[in-house]
Design a protein around this nucleic acid. Structure first.
Lengths: 122, 122
DNA sequence: ACATTATTTCAATAATCGTTGAAATATGGA
DNA sequence: TCCATATTTCAACGATTATTGAAATAATGT
């Protein structure tokens, strides 16, 4: 993941309405929810909601698909996972004694490789 | 974690210089790096760097401690973990058939509880 | 006390962002 | 075709944010 993509995703999440929308969609799972229902649940006016959904979509955090007159929005789980991997990339890379007790990403591919380079047991 | 805290942390990360600083500090581990070295590595002027470090500190994502005339900044790993937990809270909660293939947080306490409530095998 | 290094504070400016109201587009049903 | 529902687009405004230059504070060594 490149930094611009990460910035887009983080800026998209760094706003009360959008963070609420995203977390609601995380709970909702693959099928997602129609825009109208999101707006009703979170008390966001339709035009404002549309603006925020566009921003989330542009950031790759949600997807929309039309079904009749409604548009269902769902979280993009794999892009969210990529974002979190990016944020914790190379966690512990500079420690010589292996992962920290609170290492954020001990199971990441990068980390295993780094630890192997240092000859640290997994 | 409450939404305001999450927004503060996400806004702090949603900026190129600060995301660079944070990721550098993730790599640097517990001991962190002196402000000056961060600025040199990322080519950020001292006053601008100070502004960004204050923002990251206010958001609870980094900590600073003085050592002589230098101030060492280090990532706050546990707060970062809390942020990621908040972002993936209740992932899959609405699915009846257990966690999705790409569930973001299958091991979370909330999820195990939810799955148990539904009588889904772990 | 003075000079040097490291970092922060302050004020000003330009750019970006979220909200609102009003109008437009799209879909499906009578 | 006409109407109601669902969602988006557009323009305008106020608020927030990042950057800059200049000055201030803090710590150390001579």
């Amino acid at each position: 993941m490149e930094i611009e993509l990460a910035i887009d995703a983080l800026s998209a999440l760094a706003q009360t309405s959008r963070l609420g929308i995203f977390r609601l969609l995380i709970t909702a799972g693959q099928d997602g929810l129609p825009a109208g229902e999101i707006g009703r649940k979170l008390s966001i006016p339709a035009n404002s909601l549309s603006f925020h959904l566009t921003r989330l979509r542009y950031a790759g955090l949600v997807r929309g698909r039309r079904n009749g007159r409604r548009i269902f929005y769902a979280a993009n789980f794999s892009n969210m996972q990529k974002l979190m991997d990016y944020l914790t990339e190379n966690c512990c890379a500079s420690t010589t004694e292996g992962c920290l007790p609170d290492c954020l990403n001990p199971e990441s591919a990068e980390n295993k490789q780094l630890m192997a380079k240092k000859g640290v047991q997994a």
